[in-house]
Design a protein around this nucleic acid. Structure first.
Length: 382
DNA sequence: TATTAGTCAATAAG
DNA sequence: CTTATTGACTAATA
């Protein structure tokens, strides 16, 4: 029941090569804007400009877009989608040209605008444009209805023939439904078996990451054989892990930005050295929501707790201390908590140390080392 | 060539 | 069914 059927999206100009397919690109997005509609925007959300008949391509719109607050945008999109019972799949495929999983990720962990590449900004610009016109919600809902209709029709036809026992399987046949490229012969399309790393393997890899975020080919080979994994799997794991750890740091950065600032007399101080630091202006503006204070599994997964603003400050350079850089105790073997708390009954588990912080430290060290070789400090991204 | 950024797509979780 | 997670792959960069 996947959807080989591209709902309605008219021209799906996807020019692709390469085995798999990637980059759907250009979904449908017009802005007839037939109604003046009150169109009040949100808090600090500026309003770029659509580009239907204005001849502007989305790409150009992205390039000329003012800084957008990705956090505010995703928050709003999530709200609108849930309020109207619209799913990520439909939204993603028809509005963003992305798959459900990508949308989920984007909405849950938007990277700050200044950390996004031109391509990475595109989905956010599309979301912003989509939000701009309340009419778009209606259109999406219509689409949803059409899809449902088609779905029911399909189901009906398949029920009509076989048996009556609806709610469930009928006999052996029925397995194997629609697959891309139905009609003809779908021959040897075995949907790639997903490699799933066991908790133990992940632990080992995380441990390895802690000591060396950028393992040498030799180390990688070693890990691969020890864990009985393909070398490429280990390499991919490191790529993905670094990338995802980094992303969490962005998120902390954003959350932190919203805190520690009562009055508004601070925002961005003037002492901005020469670096091309980013400039977060519109604070997350997100009141409420605990966000983040979650995680804390047990065995696997470590957590990152509150972060702190990493600010650049030419004058008082010492104030670098941040929760992020305070590595409690990395390494292994820790258990036996020295328990020296004043609090009587406290911290039962905890064993799950802040590995990520430690890992991040290593990551930073690594980058610092690389940066040290450079002469131009303006490139240091700290 | 090594890494990163962005996604996809399978499948886990809810 | 919908959303979240994650190994793998492509294109862009350094």
């Amino acid at each position: 029941s996947p959807a080989p059927e591209s709902p309605l999206s008219s021209a799906e100009e996807s020019l692709n090569g390469s085995g798999g397919d990637q980059a759907p690109q250009a979904p449908s997005l017009e802005t007839p804007s037939g109604e003046p509609s009150g169109g009040e925007s949100q808090p600090g959300t500026p309003l770029p400009l659509p580009g239907p008949v204005t001849g502007l391509s989305i790409q150009e719109t992205v390039a000329t877009s003012p800084e957008l607050d990705t956090y505010v945008i995703t928050k709003k999109v999530k709200e609108v989608l849930t309020d109207n019972n619209l799913g990520q799949r439909l939204f993603g495929e028809s509005i963003l040209g992305l798959t459900q999983g990508s949308v989920s990720d984007l909405l849950a962990r938007p990277k700050p605008w200044h950390k996004l590449s031109l391509k990475g900004r595109e989905p956010f610009v599309r979301m912003q444009l989509w939000l701009q016109d309340p009419h778009n919600v209606e259109k999406l809902m219509d689409m949803k209805r059409l899809e449902k209709k088609a779905y029911l029709k399909r189901r009906h036809s398949s029920l009509s023939d076989g048996h009556s026992v609806d709610g469930s399987l009928a006999g052996p046949e029925f397995l194997q439904s629609s697959s891309p490229q139905h009609h003809p012969a779908a021959q040897p399309y075995q949907k790639k078996v997903r490699v799933v790393l066991g908790p133990e393997e992940k632990e080992a890899l995380k441990r390895a990451y802690q000591e060396k975020p950028y393992p040498s080919p030799k180390t990688i080979e070693e890990l691969a054989s020890q864990l009985n994994l393909k070398t490429s799997t280990v390499i991919n794991w490191f790529h993905n892990y670094r990338s995802r750890i980094r992303r969490e740091l962005f998120i902390e950065e954003i959350q932190a930005a919203g805190a520690a600032k009562a009055g508004e007399g601070d925002s961005c101080d003037g002492t901005e050295s020469d670096s091309a630091m980013e400039g977060r202006h519109g604070c997350p503006a997100g009141p409420e929501e605990n966000r983040g204070a979650s995680e804390d599994q047990d065995g696997p997964e470590a957590g990152v707790s509150a972060g702190s603003p990493a600010q650049r400050n030419g004058t008082t350079s010492s104030s670098v201390s941040s929760g992020l850089f305070s590595v409690s105790e990395a390494g292994l073997s820790l258990s036996v908590p020295v328990n020296h708390n004043s609090a009587p009954v406290r911290s039962p588990r905890d064993n799950t140390l802040r590995k990520k912080k430690a890992a991040n430290l290593n990551n930073i060290i690594h980058r610092l080392e690389k940066a040290a070789v450079k002469e131009d400090p303006s490139e240091w991204e700290f």
